[in-house]
Design a protein around this nucleic acid. Structure first.
Lengths: 120, 120
DNA sequence: CTGGATCCGGAAAGATACTG
DNA sequence: CAGTATCTTTCCGGATCCAG
């Protein structure tokens, strides 16, 4: 390995660490996908992100808000309505989501293929 | 939201869940970056992936091997040498790594900019 | 010395019941 | 509806220990 490769490698890892603050979470990207598809309410998000618990939903929404990726708006009622919305900056994650979606789909196929071989 | 959007959204989440098996880990991508840069030994990986413990390194290596992303070869010694190597399939993650690197770098800038504004 | 496995304590994730 | 409180379980990191 050349020294320029080592420098490249370290830069990549530094960038990955920063990206992981958002990406390296079980729920944040699915949540953002739901929010980028439209404005949602707490219950709606809970339904559209399969498997998430109310506790994790509340926590992840708070974190995404702190990261300026989504906004939380309260419309005083009655009835009180709380609306979560993806901020424009969240759109910058679209390429990331696309690539992960593509890789995830092909990886599912890859795993299926391996399973078929191992059973043969 | 149209129903085709809903279908698209579910497909995306399904793909993200599969991708997250590999990507959604603190150490797997950094480890793969190190391994894609060259064949490495246990201690070398421990050094090049900043902050990882021997326990997590051993665990993540096992998982990556089970996922057919890397290979583990033992050359009986003495001294015994164990060599970890990225399998060809691991190269399919290169686009994922690239896009995450790009987003991570720009996100670091974005966060810096926000910090500067908040201090002004 | 390298390549791990094991034990322990704190932190985070999950399930779910409950509240305004 | 929009969460919080509580309890359980699982995960992570550090230190230590062991085999070749």
């Amino acid at each position: 390995m050349t020294s320029s490769q080592a420098v490249q490698c370290e830069q990549t890892m530094r960038a990955l660490r920063h990206a992981s603050l958002v990406v390296n979470s079980k729920w944040k990207l699915p949540l953002l996908v739901a929010l980028l598809t439209g404005t949602r309410h707490f219950r709606g998000l809970e339904r559209s992100v399969a498997g998430i618990s109310t506790k994790m939903l509340a926590k992840e929404l708070k974190e995404l808000e702190a990261q300026h990726l989504i906004s939380r708006t309260v419309y005083p009622g009655p009835p009180v309505v709380v609306e979560y919305q993806a901020l424009p900056y969240a759109q910058s994650l679209n390429p990331v989501i696309e690539v992960l979606k593509a890789w995830g789909m092909q990886h599912e196929q890859h795993v299926e293929a391996l399973k078929a071989v191992s059973m043969a």
